[in-house]
């Protein structure tokens, strides 16, 4: 559905390129993600893809048609969840939504109160946005991206700045969108978001893509298939996952002292990121 070949971009007035020959593709109906630290070029890539930044090198194809050949009808097909809350503060949330809804073909527009209900804002629909908390504004950003029921969704840091509860809800909604057949491109610096949502994730550092794989594959390839057993008497040992139940040393070890904990040593996405890129995700 989306294909990007050799995408490079330099901001006017700067000399070093921000994006360096990116190659990736996004399949219909998948959640694809960029995972990388702040300043890596994630937002820049999305801005190019929704045609806010121009004059890039390389090729961006949407349904095999170059981005430059798409006119304003492109925007009826895509939804954009911006990184930071942006609303008319003096208007109510409903007025904000109604205003932007008026720019799309009527038949595409979703039921607005239902969207508010979906993110738990139904009681606040007629409040001015200036009375909203950051978390509420971000949820409003989220549903605004869905207003016209677009096929393709761009979410830039969809869980940044949200408390764990709301972050979890947004992640669940994004998975629901995927189940409805949407094609979704997210960016994040949060390994949980990437791990939980992405069918495939690309690591991006300093404007370059390092690797693109499903999170499970990465964790498997870079982790070790062992369990680590810690006993209360401070002893610990590692045993291979394969045949663990029949492993006599493992069973004997368990009986030596009361058990403190057992962990699998599968890598976290964050550890894989560090191993692959040599850079920490933390910002």
């Amino acid at each position: 559905m989306i294909k990007v070949n050799g995408l490079s971009f330099t901001y006017p007035g700067t000399d070093a390129p921000t994006l360096k020959a990116l190659n990736f593709d996004i399949k219909r109906g998948e959640i694809f993600g960029f995972l990388g630290p702040s300043g890596a070029g994630k937002s820049t890539t999305q801005k190019i893809m929704y045609k806010i930044l121009h004059h890039f090198e390389g090729e961006v194809l949407i349904d095999d048609k170059p981005l430059s050949k798409w006119g304003k009808e492109y925007y009826a097909r895509i939804g954009v969840g911006f990184e930071l809350p942006n609303h008319y503060l003096k208007l109510t949330a409903r007025e904000n939504m109604a205003l932007f809804a008026s720019f799309y073909p009527k038949k595409q527009i979703q039921d607005i109160p239902q969207l508010f209900e979906m993110v738990g804002l139904e009681a606040d629909i007629d409040k001015k946005v200036e009375a909203y908390s950051k978390g509420m504004k971000m949820r409003l950003n989220f549903i605004r991206a869905l207003l016209h029921n677009p096929e393709i969704l761009f979410f830039d840091e969809p869980t940044a700045g949200l408390d764990p509860m709301n972050a979890k809800k947004i992640r669940e909604h994004i998975i629901q969108l995927k189940n409805q057949g949407k094609t979704i491109f997210i960016t994040t610096h949060n390994m949980y978001t990437a791990d939980e949502l992405c069918d495939r994730v690309s690591f991006i550092v300093d404007g370059a893509l390092q690797i693109t794989e499903p999170p499970a594959t990465l964790k498997h390839n870079y982790g070790r298939d062992v369990v680590r057993v810690d006993l209360e008497d401070k002893q610990s040992a590692e045993f291979p996952l394969q045949g663990l139940g029949q492993n006599p040393q493992f069973l004997a070890f368990l009986n030596q002292a009361p058990l403190l904990r057992i962990n699998t040593l599968e890598a976290t996405l964050e550890e894989v990121f560090l191993q692959v890129t040599g850079k920490a995700l933390k910002i």
């Binding site: 929704y50 045609k51 806010i52 304003k72 009808e73 492109y74 925007y75 009826a76 895509i78 954009v80 911006f82 930071l84 942006n86 609303h87 008319y88 503060l89 932007f100 720019f103 799309y104 605004r144």
Partner: peptide, 17 residues
Amino acid sequence: EEKETAVAKIYGVLPVS
């Protein structure tokens, strides 16, 4: 104000000229 609060960006991704 619309530009400062980044609301202008929304118009940038609407299907209008």
